[in-house]
Amino acid sequence: MKGDDGVSDTDLAPERLLRLYRDMLLIRRFEERAAELRMAGLIPGFLHPYIGQEAVAVGVCAALGPGAALTSTHRGHGHMLARGASPARMYAELYGRRDGYNRAKGGSLHMIDTELGFLGANGIVGGGIPLATGAGLQLKRTGVEDVAVSFFGDGATNEGAFHESLNLASLWKLPVLYVCENNLYGEFTRQDRHQVVKDVATRAAAYEIPGVIADGNDVLDVRRVARDAVARAVAGDGPTLIEAKTYRHRGHYEGDMGRYRPPDEVAEWLARDPIITFGARLVGEHGVSQKALDGTATEIERTLDEAAAFAEASPHPDPEEALEDVYTETHEGMALR
């Protein structure tokens, strides 16, 4: 699902809808299994699971063509998988192995796939926003009719990087989609304790750009909003701020129990699980069989079994590889140790 086929929501064929379901479920299961692998001691570093927010990544990426450039966040696995990345190379990176996307130099927070235009997860909250703005600038400078997309959370909208970038993009009419995944928490802090605005989308008014709210648990609604923003960007009318209202099912990172969240709030959002609700709609409204959904789930388990096996079999890096890749070219006198 690397490209938008130009088909409107109502006309999407069942196979296409099933693909959206499949992509969301792949992200869910990738993350659940990553958590298990971490518990088993196979993944050494941080994990910030995307579980619960799958409809945002999949909905946005379904609106993009193959030439889009994307920046992501510390919670980036979902964006990368929605863009079509290889689960095997992602697991290999999480394992810290040579066949990982970043050759074991990055891990979860820095994963990248340049062939997919995926310019990287980011360990700095808001760090990807100026980079996507620059990617949009480069697309515009070179006359490429495509878009840059920046994913970030509600917490990042309090960073200067967010405001500086929206101002620049608005001023220069850059083809950028700013996608705020409002999952109601900036790390451990509830939204109403980190910003007065309830709707992040209203911040668009300060830059005289559209601020649009999407149901971040409805993949088709996200896709619809993203398509509008892409059309606007490609037409030269500038950026859009999209706020996708969603929820993180788990803590900020794997190991955080998320006890700062009221149980009734968690229950309410779990009942709106983007994958379960979409699966029910597919069966109830779009003539997709339960068997097809089950078959998709089975195929995903097989894919992830293979991905984990690939990671497990991939060689560890030689410790001295730590000295490689600091520069593209190492000069005389460039002491690396």
Partner: peptide, 12 residues
């Protein structure tokens, strides 16, 4: 913002 835009453009 401007330095980030420069860096982002350099990635492409």
């Amino acid at each position: 913002g401007l330095t980030g835009a420069a860096v982002g453009a350099s990635l492409l």
